Amino acid sequence: MKIAQLNVYPVKSLAGIHLEKATLGTRGLALDRNWMVVDQVGRFVTQRQLPGMARVSVRLANDWLVLEHPEAEPLAIELARRDQPRLIAYVWDDTCQALDEGEEAAAWLTRVLGDLRGSNLRLVRFDDQHLRPVEPRYLQGEEAHTAFADGYPFLIASQSSLDALNQRLEDKGLVPLPMNRFRPNIVVEGSQAFAEDGWHELTARNGAYRFGLRKPCQRCKITTIDQASGCIDVPGEPLRTLVEMKTQPLRPGAYFGQNATLLGGEECVLAVGDELDAS
């Protein structure tokens, strides 16, 4: 088995970046979900509320994070800056310390995405001095932290599982979906479909790094959104099909992929093509 894809999502719910190599940290791949769009009270905003967020692309250019949209000039954010005003941001029930990226970023986001129920939008950066722990009841003795991800530092998915889902969709006369509907960090290939649901650990064959697979990922409306257009072409899919497939027989809902923590290998570099072993 090996790594087929690596993806980082510097701004939560905006477009991702495909990588050939990435550096591991306890909060995820370097720069993953380090920024987030919030409303005027600091509450996180995602494609669940604004599907058009999918159309905002993200790239890294030297010392800058650059956001691009077809209807605006690019917005550049300095990567190293840490002197912004602090504020409180909220992800689900978690309270996070954040840095406000300022009025230019706020105006840019509101211009390209519109407001949210009358609230303007702002861009915030995770405060590196803040620790946001992963929910302890799913951990197995390790400590784990994340930035602005929904709850875990890594999301691992399997290409063979996507192939099995797409076969069911095609059997219904529906168009197969790309992996970007599920926004994983690490995609593996060479395993049986949904075998990842039985794994406890995923380890580099050379022993350099090790992940703990801790919680099946329950999927939401974002999987129904075309990540190129920001549109929902077939309402309810692939969620309806995943429910029918009962990938988690004892859990109601639609599941695809595994939330994971880092058990060893902080600061290691992983790469597409790395060989892995599951246990």
Rank of each mutant, 00 (worst) to 15 (best):
F211S: 09
D127V: 01
L131M: 10
D277Q: 15
L99Y: 10
S13A: 13
G16V: 13
L75Q: 06
E20F: 01
A254T: 14
V8D: 04
A54N: 10
L202G: 10
F44E: 00
L113W: 01
E170I: 09
P238E: 13
P51E: 07
S160P: 10
V45A: 13
K2L: 03
K215S: 15
P238V: 12
L169F: 11
G198Y: 05
D83G: 01
R59N: 13
R81V: 05
F211K: 08
A15C: 03
G25Y: 15
I225W: 02
S161P: 08
Y90V: 14
A278M: 05
V175Q: 08
M245Y: 01
R81N: 02
D63S: 09
L67K: 03
I88T: 03
S160Q: 15
A76F: 09
L239R: 06
P216C: 10
Y209Q: 09
Q218P: 03
E201I: 11
T95V: 12
M179N: 01
E170S: 13
W199H: 03
R55N: 06
R82D: 14
I222F: 05
N120I: 14
D94C: 07
V134L: 07
W92M: 08
V175S: 02
A147R: 02
L174Y: 00
A228R: 06
L270V: 06
R86I: 05
L109H: 05
D93T: 12
E142I: 10
C220L: 09
I3D: 06
L169I: 01
I156N: 07
I17P: 02
A204R: 12
